[in-house]
């Protein structure tokens, strides 16, 4: 069944994430990061950063929470077993550091069909506690074979 096009523009519940050292370190280690600035505070502070740096794609933690919230929206009509991650984009305004409190309100930026597949585009501006945008994230989920069927 095709996705509900009328949900374009719908905003979902605000997500919050405390950027904690344990998670940042585990994320860095999992992606093979060996730069000490991403593994401990001291090396980052030595170069003027307020604390240990989070790996650039760390905001994916919020992206996973966002898509978990959106794909189960009963009005959207998405069959999660057909979904694959098609595209991903980040724009970074500054490095994210341990101690940041991040806020994001994900929204459905677009829904479109191409061939047999449909594409759901989720966008979120990730802001810090001061309301400054630190990162803009855009995830495109591909729903296999759902275009045009009824």
């Amino acid at each position: 069944m095709p996705l509900n096009q009328s949900l374009k523009g719908r905003e979902y519940q605000e997500l919050r994430l405390e950027v904690d050292r344990d998670r940042v370190t585990r994320f860095s280690l999992a992606v093979g990061e060996d730069d000490p600035r991403y593994l401990e505070a001291e090396a980052a502070r030595a170069e003027g950063f307020p604390d240990q740096l989070a790996f650039p794609t760390f905001p994916t933690v919020l992206g996973i929470l966002a898509s978990a919230q959106i794909v189960v929206d009963p009005e959207l009509g998405m069959d999660y077993s057909r979904v694959v991650h098609g595209e991903q984009a980040f724009e970074w305004r500054r490095p994210i550091v341990v101690g940041d409190r991040l806020f994001a309100t994900p929204r459905i930026a677009d829904i479109y069909a191409k061939g047999p597949n449909e594409f759901l585009v989720i966008e979120a501006e990730v802001r810090d506690a001061d309301g400054e945008v630190v990162c803009v994230a855009r995830s495109t989920l591909l729903s296999r074979g759902t275009a045009g069927s009824s």
Partner: peptide, 24 residues
């Protein structure tokens, strides 16, 4: 993440990376 790390390591400065967009 491996692509991001490769770009970032090449640039050599944690603040240098401005954007990355990929298709899987």
């Amino acid at each position: 993440a491996h692509v991001a790390k490769s770009v970032k390591d090449w640039a050599g400065n944690p603040s240098a990376l401005r954007s990355l967009a990929v298709q899987f």
